[in-house]
Amino acid sequence: MRQTLWIKTLAAAALTAGLTSLPAHAQDSRVNDELAKYREALADGNPADLLEVRGEGLWREKRGPKQASLEACDLGLGPGKLEGAYAQLPRYFKDTGKVMDVESRLVHCMVSLQGFKADEVTRHWYSKPGTESDIEALVTFIGAKSNGLKIHAPASHPEEARMAKMGEYIFYRRSGPQDFSCAICHGQEGKRIRLQELGNLTTPAGAGEAMKTWPSYRVSQGAVWTMQRRLIDCMRQARWPEPNYLSDAVIALETFLQKTASGTVMETPGIKR
């Protein structure tokens, strides 16, 4: 199974590299067509499915100093209720007095319910060669429980509204040595970088298209990425000071984007280039 997926990944990478020799006006159409075919070929065998199964095992397993499972974790709909929970995050949690996304809430539950230390569970918050991430697996499992349901994150609580406003400010703020902002790439229609189309995240349709498939398996990386990792990497590429994992800045951006994407039907885990 793994060998087959690896061969498919290499084939996709080689195909994309070969397409760069085409004239610029033909590249977009060809790349989109070939990526669509590749996604279709993996539709019944998304590598993220394996991580989803692992995440379910971690959710139910009794672990940590307290030898407890995560089945009592409240992601906003009540202890252990996962159907649609991801699609309604980030949201305000009274017990912490904070707006939290799925990853910050998971860390909170792993600390409070299972007795882990925060630095212990966040040490491997994303996978590396030879090192698997429990958080990525759990997020993939939880995200899949919202598949087919609509994103509903209206930011109606005052703290949610404040975070959404902060996220909007960050989205448009030009910063870093290149005087860059999120909006430069994602603030209007018809933009691209190299062979990649850049969605307009200021519209419900554009934000919805971007948000509905996360977490996603990234073919170019051979790994599943969460929304935290995607946004932190975007900031890095924009040459901004890289934010800490679970920082308010990243959660604020998520809140703004999820609010904009509300009404879009989730399709996760997705497949990205």
Rank of each mutant, 00 (worst) to 15 (best):
153 A>W: 05
102 V>G: 05
134 D>G: 13
229 R>P: 06
164 A>D: 01
215 P>L: 08
162 R>D: 13
154 P>T: 03
54 R>P: 11
95 D>S: 09
162 R>C: 10
54 R>N: 08
159 E>Y: 13
149 L>H: 09
151 I>P: 01
205 A>S: 15
165 K>V: 12
59 W>V: 08
133 S>G: 05
9 T>I: 14
3 Q>G: 15
111 V>K: 02
174 R>V: 14
78 G>C: 09
193 I>M: 11
156 S>C: 11
3 Q>N: 13
163 M>C: 03
87 A>V: 00
175 S>C: 14
72 A>K: 14
124 H>V: 10
268 T>Q: 10
183 A>Y: 02
76 G>C: 03
90 P>D: 00
235 M>Q: 07
87 A>R: 04
166 M>G: 06
136 E>T: 07
128 K>G: 04
250 V>N: 02
94 K>P: 05
40 E>C: 06
154 P>S: 06
39 R>M: 04
52 E>N: 11
37 K>N: 14
224 V>C: 02
94 K>R: 15
35 L>G: 02
157 H>Y: 10
264 T>F: 06
156 S>I: 12
174 R>G: 11
172 Y>M: 12
35 L>C: 12
226 T>N: 00
97 G>Y: 04
115 G>Y: 05
156 S>N: 14
96 T>A: 07
40 E>S: 11
56 E>I: 06
2 R>Q: 15
268 T>M: 10
176 G>R: 11
264 T>V: 11
64 G>S: 03
90 P>Y: 04
103 E>I: 00
94 K>F: 04
176 G>F: 06
8 K>W: 12
273 R>Q: 12
154 P>D: 00
172 Y>G: 11
232 I>N: 05
80 G>P: 00
165 K>F: 11
256 F>T: 01
